[in-house]
Simulated assay, not measured.
Amino acid sequence: MNERIPALKREPEVPRRRISKLLAVLIALFAIVLVVLFFRSPLSKVADIRVTGTNHLSESEVKKALGIVPGDSFFSPGSSKLEGNVKALPPVKNVRVVKKFPGTVEVRVQEYGEVAMEIGTDGAVRVVLENGLAVPAKSGSLPDKPILTGWRPDDAARKALCQALASMPDDLLTDLSEIKPDPSASYPDRIKLFTRSRFEVITTISKLQEKIPYLSEIVENREPGRILMLEADTYLPFSAENAPSETGEADKHKENGTTQ
């Protein structure tokens, strides 16, 4: 007689959902440990700060304004915050901070352009930037720019002039030798310019940018003279001013004939 073999009892299975949760917890814990270890490692720290593009600012001044030093967190503060720190320096026109992993922070600075020079009350020569800021001139290196004379440092017209000079072509700006205020009742911002090519120019700060093409054309193609650029533009060569009139010449000849 055949006997039936009783079926073996199966061990109860652990629900798959419980395994998934356990695995997720383990992965999360492992990730947290890795993150903690990473942020404690040298890989998460600033190792090198590189500054480029400075002219009147020193590298140390930029680094001080940046607000971080090697050993600080590489990820915080962010690039925009660091850019704002450096942008607060008066000579800085634009700045870009680029972080390169691991540990390198590049600070790319663009300073305001040089537009003029001036001599301070102490006799020191200073370079004037397009935002009106005057900075000490580097020893043995003076830019070929016009000299501002007769201007007050806090004069708003002076700052407007510097901004207008920044829009001038380099060759024309280089040709300017001196710029002084020459205000009148009708034109409070009137100025007088002298060029190395021996032109004398009267215009206003507010009209200067508009008149640049006309000024360039005369300086390049005419003989030295006086240029008036206000509501209307006029040009008179110095040779015409010095030439004797026909009446004067006739009187002179008549006088000579009488004395003979």
Rank of each mutant, 00 (worst) to 15 (best):
A88P: 02
L148Q: 06
V125F: 04
E13C: 02
I5Q: 09
A157T: 04
I5Y: 09
R108P: 02
K21R: 14
V128L: 06
I227Q: 02
Y187C: 04
F39R: 08
S177C: 08
A250H: 07
W151N: 09
K21T: 08
I119W: 03
V109I: 13
R40Y: 08
A31K: 00
D233C: 10
E246D: 13
N55W: 04
T258D: 13
F238I: 07
T234N: 09
L173I: 10
S41W: 04
P224H: 14
R196K: 15
A250C: 02
P15T: 08
V62F: 01
S141A: 13
D155I: 06
D251E: 14
F38V: 03
N256D: 14
I119V: 15
V105A: 08
L57Y: 01
P70G: 03
R126W: 05
P181A: 10
N85E: 13
R18T: 12
V25T: 13
V36P: 03
E178P: 10
V98T: 15
I5H: 07
R4I: 14
R10Y: 03
E13T: 11
A24D: 01
T258Q: 15
A243D: 10
K81H: 07
L215W: 04
Y235A: 08
L37N: 11
G113L: 10
R198N: 15
H253L: 13
R4S: 13
T259Y: 05
E130L: 12
